[in-house]
Design a binder for these strands. Sequence first.
DNA 1: ACGTTACTTTCTAAAGC
DNA 2: GCTTTAAAAAGTAACGT
Lengths: 188, 207
Amino acid sequence: MSKAEEAKKTITIENVVASTAIGQEIDLKSVTLALEGADYDPEQFPGLVYRTKDPKTAALIFRSGKIVCTGAKSIEDVDRGLKKVFKKMDSVGIKVDQNPEITVQNIVASADLGSVLNLNAIAIGLGLENIEYEPEQFPGLVYRLDHPKVVVLLFGSGKLVVTGGKKPKDAEEAVDRIVKELEGLALL
Amino acid sequence: RLRKWQRRIRVSNATERNLAFALSELDRMASALGLPRNIRETSAVVYRKAVTKNLIRGRSIEGVAAAALYAACRQNGVPRTLDEIAEVSRVSRKEIGRTYRFISRELGLKLMPTSPIDYVPRFCSGLSLKGEVQSRAVEILRQAAEKELTSGRGPTGVAAAAIYISSILCGERRTQREVANVAGVTEVTIRNRYKELAEELDIEIIL
DNA sequence: ACGTTACTTTCTAAAGC
DNA sequence: GCTTTAAAAAGTAACGT
């Protein structure tokens, strides 16, 4: 089996960020008082923070009725988490459309290439103009891809992070390309 | 017609005033760090290029000047850490680092990551260590680079560890605390790096 | 010299300063 | 640009014991 196939098997989705909107304005003040565990400090941030334990997510609820859900480990968990948020809103007297459109905005995934990397050689090989590698500031090498449009963080251990994608397939394509480019340069 | 001329003169004056301020800022920081004239000139060149490409928009003159100085030190092979630049700047280390990344990319500076070797002469002189200790530290760092013991590690920490080992091997031992202070890293970092170097390079350290 | 916590980098939406 | 949220990677730092 190819190294690309092996690496793709190690992909783990670590965080999914999604946005949605209930079609209604919300009085965050009253919601804060009605929902236990709700954090709302308009001086600091205009959104109300509400956390769910299963799945573990954090929802940011805004006056406009727009909601951002972060922390889910899968797209399914985003839906489950938001369903719970909607139910809670409902129980507090806010009429919520139980099936609003949910848009995945960002997916963070990790993976393992299986062998250590020489980041210095990779920085030169992939081109200093396309890469950011400043070990004084951060141990990871930053590689921005155009297709798919994601950002990959490569580490000396061979592990990596792919972020910026909107679907699981973006991470797979990114790993595939990274492996092939590194193999082409004999750096993997 | 006349207004257009006045505007040009005004813009010109503002541009020249800003450039003069930036150059004096570069000079002030360079003096505080005791940097030689060639680096001050390099930093001025980098700053002028940034102005020519309109990279100052949305950024402070101090921030771009600090980033230009940081870049100039690296271009000349005598890097200062972001912490050292930040100490003589009014801008935060975080802001200098982000501005450096921006102008580096926009100006196509294509600088290689800082090598631990470039810190050896300065750190060694700060510890009053002789040339023999320096060359031995450099040799350790060359081997470390070949065995890929530097990927992702902070250059100053690796350099400090090599100097620590070298000082012991040469019979001019410096304590981890002394080396840590000169290199601007913690003793914990030196300990982690030197243990790794000693083991991977089969160097026996007898304390 | 441990252990723990926390900060560095990347991404993304939200409303408002 | 900033503010807040979540998450991983690995290095470094700063606490406390």
